[in-house]
Simulated assay, not measured.
Amino acid sequence: MSNDISLPIAAPMARTTRSPIVEAQSWLEGREFSAEMPLLNVSQAAPMAPPPLALRKEMARFALEDDAAHLYGPVLGLPALRSAVAARWSAIYGGTIEQDDVAITSGANEAFTAVMSTIAAAGDEVILPTPWYFNHKMWCDMQGVRAMPLPVGADMLPDIEDAARLIGPRTRAIVLVTPNNPAGIEYPSELLTKFYALAREAGITLVVDETYRDFDARDGAQHILFRQPDWRDTFVQIYSFSKAYRLTGHRVGALTASPARLAQVEKYLDTVTICPAQIGQHAALQGIETLDAWLAEERAEILARRRALEDGFAPLAAKGWKLHSTGGFFAYVSHPFARPSSEIARELVEKAGVLLLPASFFVPEGDKRGDRDLRIAFANLDCDGLNTLISRLAAFEG
């Protein structure tokens, strides 16, 4: 394969950094890990187990018995799944969501790129709290959209007044993620309402990515944005079935927005994927209809792992580590060493058998938090595994 760097590459793409997940995985090349110290991979927040057996059997039945499983479907997704999402979201949030407000996408990332393509173009600006979700920043860079960093405070939450000062004539949207990726923090409902009001007053769009909603520690609705009488004019929500039902390989997400915006999204989806995969959509529908009890158990397990990390953090705190926030699948921590997190993360692979991500992947170049912070995607470790992780990090001398 040629690696000729003289190939003509469009400037925005050439300026876009490599995916942090791909970069981190490259640190493992040529390495072997012993049985005594197997690799602890806490770099990626994707379920590492397949869907529950009952769901896999239903997916297999659908693939074998229904010809529609192998054909193109509606660009915006199966009507039955769109209807089920609308009904479920209406019940969860206490608002009114119709089938025509919902599109099914090939994962939450496609939901984001699709809707952002209707919101911002080259030369426009989008406000992203930092630390940001790297794929959101990568999309901005690829499109020539300027990502305006909004640094969070010590509580890992963005400040509404700081955001207001960033809004200018080219600002098109504010993008929030809750539970947050990478920090894990769960945004208070009151804060989301303030951001909604700010976006509405400024005439821009508020995009809220709720990929990890099903693992929020709070019961009930996480916000009241769908209860706003004119929410369709301002608010867009993104969701992922991949995390809820372990459908990462099947790529199923959902986008909730006004029908007028989805009419534009449809153009994008028809150009990129034509339609979401039928088997994955069928699985998502089965999940909504039959897996509430199973999903509740999954949530309880993730919350138990979160508590285990929080409760077991004392040995790290004694060594100068700091736990800033937890939630969803993530913990955001500071290390006590003089060297930058980008060096510490690579050395942890070699000396501790731990793969995690440095905060330099989540902040603008030159941001000092990138030097001291790390992201731990803890959801794929059980409580014993988390204890091992803490022990290895505590033993690491940097």
Score class of each variant (00 low, 15 high):
Ser342Leu: 12
Gly385Trp: 02
Asn380Ser: 03
Pro259Ser: 02
Arg213Ala: 07
Ala244Ser: 13
Thr16Gly: 10
Leu348Glu: 12
Asp311Ser: 11
Tyr245Trp: 13
Lys243Cys: 05
Glu350Gly: 11
Phe33Ile: 07
Trp139Glu: 11
His223Pro: 05
Gly184Glu: 03
Tyr212Leu: 06
Leu374Met: 14
Ala379Asp: 07
Ser26Trp: 06
Ile160Val: 15
Met1Asn: 10
Thr118Lys: 02
Val363Trp: 00
Arg15Leu: 13
Ala108Gly: 13
Val265Pro: 04
Leu191Trp: 08
Pro52Arg: 13
Gly398Met: 05
Gly280Trp: 00
Gly366Asn: 09
Ser325Leu: 06
Met37Glu: 09
Ile92His: 13
Gln281Glu: 13
Thr248Val: 14
Gly95Gln: 01
Gln25Ala: 06
Asp219Lys: 04
Val115Thr: 14
Ala14His: 09
Asn41His: 05
Val152Asn: 04
Arg305Val: 00
Glu310Ala: 15
Leu348Ile: 10
Phe337Ile: 14
Leu381Pro: 00
Asp67Val: 15
Ile279Ser: 01
Glu186Phe: 05
Pro179Met: 07
Arg261Lys: 13
Gly398Tyr: 03
His70Asp: 04
Leu316His: 00
Leu255Pro: 00
Arg61Met: 10
Gly366Trp: 03
Trp231Leu: 00
Asp162Asn: 15
Arg306Thr: 06
Arg170Met: 09
Ser242Trp: 11
Met1Ala: 12
Ala304Met: 10
Glu32Val: 12
Glu297Asp: 14
Gln278Cys: 07
Val175Cys: 12
Asp209Thr: 02
Ala10Trp: 15
Phe235Cys: 01
Leu150Glu: 04
Met142Gln: 13
Met59Arg: 13
Val75Thr: 15
Val175Pro: 00
Gly153Lys: 07
Gln228Asn: 14
Ala379Leu: 01
Phe378Lys: 00
Arg372Phe: 05
Gln99Tyr: 01
Asn181Pro: 01
His136Gln: 14
Phe33Pro: 08
Lys57Cys: 10
Tyr187Asp: 04
Glu36Trp: 05
Gln281Lys: 08
Asn380Gln: 11
Arg305Gln: 11
Ala244Lys: 12
Tyr268Ile: 04
Ile390Glu: 08
Tyr212Arg: 07
Leu355Met: 12
Asp292Gly: 14
Arg61Pro: 01
His223Val: 01
Ile160Met: 10
Gly220Phe: 01
Glu32Pro: 01
Arg213Glu: 08
Thr17Tyr: 14
Ala183Leu: 11
Leu255Ala: 06
Val333Trp: 00
Asp373Trp: 00
Ala91Trp: 10
Pro50His: 06
Glu365Leu: 12
Pro38Trp: 01
Ser189Asp: 12
Pro38Glu: 02
Leu76Val: 03
